[in-house]
Structures are given as structure tokens and as C-alpha cells.
Design a protein around this nucleic acid. Structure first.
Lengths: 225, 225
DNA sequence: ATAAATTTGATAGTAAAGCTATTATATTTG
DNA sequence: CAAATATAATAGCTTTACTATCAAATTTAT
């Protein structure tokens, strides 16, 4: 019996809660579809509105601009993923096994979670890989950070850092290693697909290779000494 | 006696070679200044033209659009950095020492290279940290890749991968580890400055911490077994 | 069941970004 | 000095990003 995931969202990210109405849920569902299909650059509120069958002004009533919508989607994703991780590692005692599980969940393909009607997690995962870092790679990161936009991401990284410290309390860089795991889970998969010569995974290979690489990298550091 | 660095640029990146005229060099110099100051998002050819004292159309004669200009700047940076690395590791025999030097060059602050009149490498380095991944995180990566836009980046990563293999011919992921070094040298510095809670480097700490983290991470993997 | 409140749709409009074209004037080069 | 090339000046067009207004529809509270 898998419980219904509840993702608490920062209210500063939206003008009207998209989960509270049909139009709002449509905005989420179709923005994921459109960004997944054409990328963030080509995505506009006008195109989204046309796609949904509403008006531009209608979308603007929910989100101030497309950057906030992207941050909303990334925050949602990290919240959802931490929920998955918590659930999947709940009854694992060994922190090494726990961490291995986390690496798998980060680097393996994500399947659509049917419990969340209006969010396609498969597509959202792809969006996070391709556009996720743009959420915080801006001149206004600091402001956004003060408004706690990145809390779910930071919370997840902190949790992973905790696991690392449990594996080896003397390891000096648990948080930096945690962000390395998270970022590299995505970057290596991105390179594997789009710029394969930057990786050691042939074109025919799959995500297992990325997971093996990360396991090798991370546990060599943690186990050392 | 440091030799004059010559950075060979892919001609597909520009309409007119910016190095071939005064206006062209001004475009490079001032776009670096403006992107460094306000970020890529706020940067437009109109503002650049005003800043230089020319017209928008004048800028468009050199670069098709701001994405190609960004790719040009990143390609230039990676070309310049590989030149620095080649020069700095030229008479080092030990591949471990070589790799350590590379990590330093990647993660330490960059000073302006006075041999290059129209490029401020300090600012350009900051731009690469903050905007660099946007050069290949697009829906048209594959097309851009076919036109060899990312050659300098890939060439540098390949060279680092070579060094890793020299350190340990049995290490299975030299190229993925190379991209991990390059990306993390930038990401950890970005997080250190803008989202410090994602790292283990306090706010007062400097780039040395990032270098130590990377050395610890990389050599644990390579030396293993 | 109906009045009040809220949500949505339709329409309009503005400023800036992104890009192209044309012609005149400098400047360089042959 | 003529020819070729580079730059400046101006204009214009489409799209993006965003705001405002008002009417119609739907929900909710009494």
C-alpha cells in the first residue's frame, strides 16, 4: 500500500495555488508537457495558454513568470523525490545500502507516479536533467534563496549528506559530496544521451553505467582511510 | 617568457571574425563585461550596442544571436584554459602531480591574462561558472555538437581523461571522472559563493577548500585497488 | 434558491527583445 | 585615387513578457 505523496509547496512560488483548481492543474500538466517537448527557451505562457485552451492572462493569474514556474516544478520534483527516497530507505539500517539506494533513485529512469494525477514524473525528471540547474543559475539566486525557493533541493542534499556522515563520521565533505552525487546523477545522464564522448558509457549503454560510476566514485571516497 | 596564446576558433560560431576588427574586439570585451555584470538573461544585443557606442545591427553582423556569442565565449575560454594547462604541466612527468595541477587551474580563481588585450579572463571565468552549462543545455545540443561548437570543452575533458588513465590504466571511468572534475570545480565554487549550505566550505573559506575536496574525491577513486 | 464571491474568458494594449533590411558614410586596401 | 569593405543611422516587423478591464460562468455561503 503506497501512501499518497503530499508535496508541501512554498506559497511564495505562485500567485494562486495551481493545485487548488482545474485550470491550475492543467497549467502544471501542460507546462511539463511543453517544456519537455520544446525546452524551456521555446516555452512561453502564450503557447501554454493556447495549448490548454485558456488565455495568457489566465496563466499569469497563477504564476508571475516562467522562471517561477520552473522553480515551482523543480521544487515539486525534489519534494516528490525525497518522499520516494524516504519511503524506499525507510526500513534499511545500513547507511551504505541506504546511500546506494539513493544513488539508484537519482540516476535511474523515473516512471510516472500514477498517484499524482496532474504531474508526469517521467517528463518532469527529464526536465530537471535538462533545465534544473537554470532554476538557481541566475543573477537573483540569493534573493530566491532568501525566499526559500530551493528548500526542497537543499533539504534533500542535507539528508544525503547525513547518510554520508553515518557511513563515515570522519569524512570531511559530506555536503559537497551529496551535491556532487545529485548533480552528477543528472549531468552524466545528460552527457550519456547528448554528448556521449564526454562519458565512458557507449551509446548502447544505459543508466546502470551511470549508477556504477557514481557508486565507484562515492564509496571510494567515503570508505577511504 | 610566456608565449602569446593563440586560440583557434570555430568559424561556424560567428558571421564575421570578431578578432579581425576593432568593433569585433569591442563586442567581445564589452559582452564579457555586461554578462559578468548583469547575467546572460538581462544581456541583449541592443544594450551591448549602446554600451559600445554602435548599433544593434552592427553587433548582428558579427554574431547571429546571443546563444552563439555565449558558445563563442565558452569555446574561447576552454581553448585558453587548455593552453594554460598545457603550458603549466609541460615539464611535469608524474601524472598524479599533473592532475593535481589541473584541478588547481580549474578550481582556483583566474587572473586576467594581460597577453589577451580584449578578453578579461577573470570575468570570463566567472561567466563560465555562472552561465557555462547553458551553452550546451539546450534543445539543439545535438545540432550544435555536430557543428563542433563544443570541441574545445570536449578536447580538454579528453586530455584530463588521458591523465587519469595514465594514473591508473585500470580505472574504468576516466572520461566521466574528467567531466566530473571540470563541472564540480565550477559548481562547488558556485555553491560556495551563492548557496553555501550545499557545501562544507564556510562563508569565510576560499577556493582552496574546493581544490582539497576535489583532490580527495578524485584521487580516492583513481588510487583505489 | 439565490445573492455574493470567486474564477475564468475575451479583448486590448504597452514595452522590450530579437531580428532584418536599406542606404549613407567612413575607412582600409589594391 | 578607385574599389572594396566596414560601420553608422534609421526604420520596421514579429514575438515575448506582462498588465488592465470587464463580462460571463461557476462555486459557495446563507
Amino acid at each position: 500500500m503506497r501512501p499518497q505523496p503530499y508535496i508541501a509547496m512554498n506559497e511564495a512560488l505562485y500567485l494562486r495555488n495551481p493545485e487548488s483548481s482545474e485550470l491550475g492543474k492543467k497549467i502544471i500538466r501542460h507546462s511539463i508537457e511543453l517544456i519537455h517537448l520544446n525546452g524551456l527557451e521555446a516555452f512561453t505562457f502564450r503557447k501554454l495558454a493556447e495549448h490548454i485552451g485558456t488565455t495568457e492572462a489566465g496563466v499569469y493569474r497563477y504564476f508571475e513568470n516562467k522562471h517561477k514556474l520552473l522553480v515551482y516544478l523543480t521544487a515539486w520534483y525534489w519534494g516528490w523525490l525525497e518522499f520516494q527516497i524516504t519511503f524506499a530507505t525507510n526500513n534499511i539500517q545500513d547507511p551504505f545500502v541506504k546511500l546506494e539506494k539513493v544513488i539508484s533513485l537519482l540516476a535511474a529512469p523515473v516512471e510516472d507516479d500514477e498517484r499524482t494525477e496532474h504531474v508526469n514524473e517521467y517528463m518532469l525528471h527529464q526536465i530537471i536533467i535538462e533545465e534544473g540547474s537554470k532554476a538557481y543559475m541566475t543573477k537573483h539566486v540569493e534573493d530566491d534563496n532568501k525566499l526559500h525557493y530551493f528548500k526542497p533541493y537543499k533539504h534533500l542534499c542535507a539528508a544525503i549528506g547525513e547518510m554520508i556522515s553515518q557511513c563515515n563520521p570522519n569524512y570531511k565533505y559530506p555536503r559537497s559530496l551529496a551535491t556532487t552525487i545529485v548533480e552528477m546523477a543528472h549531468f552524466q545522464n545528460y552527457f550519456r544521451v547528448h554528448l556521449p564522448s564526454l562519458t565512458d558509457f557507449g551509446p548502447s549503454k544505459n543508466e546502470r553505467d551511470v549508477i556504477e560510476f557514481l557508486n565507484d566514485l562515492i564509496f571510494a571516497s567515503i570508505r577511504k582511510k
